[in-house]
Design a protein around this nucleic acid. Structure first.
Lengths: 159, 159
DNA sequence: CCGCCTTCCTTGATCCAGTCAAATCAAGGG
DNA sequence: CCCTTGATTTGACTGGATCAAGGAAGGCGG
């Protein structure tokens, strides 16, 4: 990605208009690799105090449709969004606090991409989610680390 | 699994009481490998006309907790349940009709289980979902296969 | 620079999966 | 057989996400 490329450029390249809510959301996502809608709305309001949640939903939908963002949906948690698109990377998700980390699918060629028996399916994507505990939660303090706390301490969860 | 083992035995072995709703749900799941709650409720009513949806939720929760069933949650779709537990197999999901097929994780040892860089996470499970089109949907008639049609008309649900 | 048209955002309602809680009912040990 | 514990019923409710109507602003033509 050339340094001179701005978010506005990217939006236009995707055929999308450049608007304040969109730039705000992009800026938020640039700083938080895996944010949920609620987090994005809150953070975006710091840049554009009047954005509505629905606007964010709309923006995210447009960004995903335009190939500028990717939506990931860990089981049992609200959707998260990230700007890393194009490379088919996967995710590590903490069962305790919900923290998410990227993982390159470096496993050689494509073991993960080639199921042994496709049962007649034509596969176009392999989605891998590694479940476990992040470093902070292993130590015993669930989701209190900065990075982690960010994605909602919906963490240990509701109960 | 010994042939003589009944569902009732399994329930007791898991420390669960043997009740009509539970047996009904188990019987439904035995016939439909990947059913969603709605499908289960409908089918279970054929065996036990008065079961409530909440009862099914409760039963499924108990079955999952007792290790008799497994819950899978494809992104953007309601949860599905299956009785195959113990073997860590994965799933093929049809983008068009939602059909699900099992895939053994035959990729040798554990390429899928070992991310290249765990970023400090302790991983205990790798979940793999292969997205694509099932045979029926490739042909051009989305979701008309019996088993398949069941979980998915949510798409065109209204109007 | 102005105006128009399209697209986007705002407001508000609605949907759906799943959960919670109180009261009733039944499984199965004593 | 009764009692205790656990399961189910009924009903309300939450939270994430979508839909719909109207108003605002992006950005092109003139």
């Amino acid at each position: 990605m050339p340094m001179g490329t701005t978010w506005a450029d990217r939006l236009r390249a995707a055929g999308l208009r450049v608007t304040r809510p969109r730039l705000s959301v992009l800026q938020v996502l640039a700083g938080r690799p895996h944010a949920d809608v609620d987090t994005i709305v809150t953070a975006a309001r710091a840049l554009h105090p009047t954005v509505s949640p629905q606007a964010v939903y709309g923006v995210l939908k447009a960004l995903v449709a335009g190939g500028l963002a990717r939506r990931i949906e860990p089981a049992g948690a609200p959707a998260l969004f990230e700007l890393r698109v194009g490379d088919n990377h996967h995710h590590l998700v903490c069962r305790s606090c919900g923290a998410v980390a990227d993982v390159d699918c470096t496993v050689g060629a494509a073991p993960c991409l080639a199921p042994s028996d496709t049962a007649g399916f034509v596969v176009d994507e392999a989605e891998v989610v590694f479940w476990g505990l992040c470093r902070a939660c292993q130590v015993g303090t669930p989701g209190v680390t900065g990075q982690v706390a960010r994605h909602q301490d919906r963490g240990g969860a509701h109960a």
